[in-house]
Amino acid sequence: MRSFIAVDTGERVPAMIDGISEKLRRMGFKASWVPGANAHVTLAFLDNIELEKLALLASMLSRRLRGFPSFTLETGRIGYFKHKDLPKVIWVAIERNQNLVNLQRETRVVLEALSLPVDENFRPHLTVGRMKFSPPMWRKFLSTLENERIIFPVGEVTIFESILSREGATYRKVFTCSFEGGLIEHAV
């Protein structure tokens, strides 16, 4: 099962992501756009993992996060990862805060205990699109974009399955680990 551990963004962020995508389309950018409904902050990408091991991971993560303090995250500026001086991925930053760093560290401890790969370069963001074409004045276009600052609550992490198709990725919740101590297994 191709999966990842992430923080959901609440109700207001998806509309913001869709709005940015629409502005970029009108400016001439072409991309595999991430639907706003798929917006999330990835804590760890798990790649392909068996359901039994995923269930063990969820159980361990739920125990580890029991009592973790709820907190808020805030969206930030629009940025990009580049490749050969062109934007490869356009994203919205997530303002870093100590609670998010601690949450990623707690997630990492569980991954390491299960000998699962850990990304050493945690850069919290919301992916807007994976670029296929950028117009000649792409830097100037990106510099003119402004986005709403949105604050959203974090009280749980979710393990998603990523299902790839020609239409793009679909994310399905597999487990949700609440900081209050609950573990929800979603119907597979």
Rank of each mutant, 00 (worst) to 15 (best):
F152L: 06
T170P: 06
R77F: 09
A187Q: 13
R123K: 14
I151A: 10
S3N: 08
A6R: 07
V13N: 09
H83P: 03
A113E: 15
L57H: 02
G182P: 11
G28Y: 06
L103I: 06
T9W: 02
M16K: 02
S178A: 10
F160G: 10
G181D: 01
R96Y: 00
C177N: 06
E180N: 08
E74V: 14
R166V: 01
G129C: 06
N121L: 10
E95H: 05
S162D: 02
Y80S: 11
T72I: 00
T72V: 10
R130L: 02
T170M: 04
S21M: 08
R64H: 07
P14F: 02
K88A: 14
M1T: 12
G79N: 04
F45Q: 12
T170F: 00
L111W: 01
T144V: 08
K30I: 06
T176M: 07
S32N: 12
N48Y: 07
A169D: 02
V7K: 04
K23T: 13
E185T: 15
K140R: 12
V41R: 00
Q98V: 15
E146N: 14
P124D: 09
L116G: 08
L24W: 00
F179Q: 05
K140Y: 09
F152C: 09
R77M: 05
Y80L: 11
F45I: 13
L142Y: 06
A31N: 08
A6H: 07
T42N: 04
S115F: 04
P153Q: 06
R64C: 13
I49K: 00
F152Y: 06
E50D: 15
V7S: 08
P124Q: 07
P135G: 13
R63L: 08
A15T: 12
V7W: 00
G10C: 13
P124M: 04
L145D: 03
Q98M: 15
E52H: 07
E22F: 12
T158I: 13
Q104R: 15
G182K: 09
W138L: 09
L65R: 01
P35N: 05
K82H: 01
F141V: 14
I78K: 00
S62A: 11
T170C: 05
E156L: 08
F133K: 15
R139K: 15
E167N: 02
K88S: 11
N99S: 15
I184F: 11
E50Y: 03
I184N: 04
V128L: 01
V7A: 05
K82V: 08
E167T: 00
R12M: 06
H83K: 12
M27Y: 07
S70Q: 09
P14N: 05
E185P: 05
I49Q: 10
G168N: 03
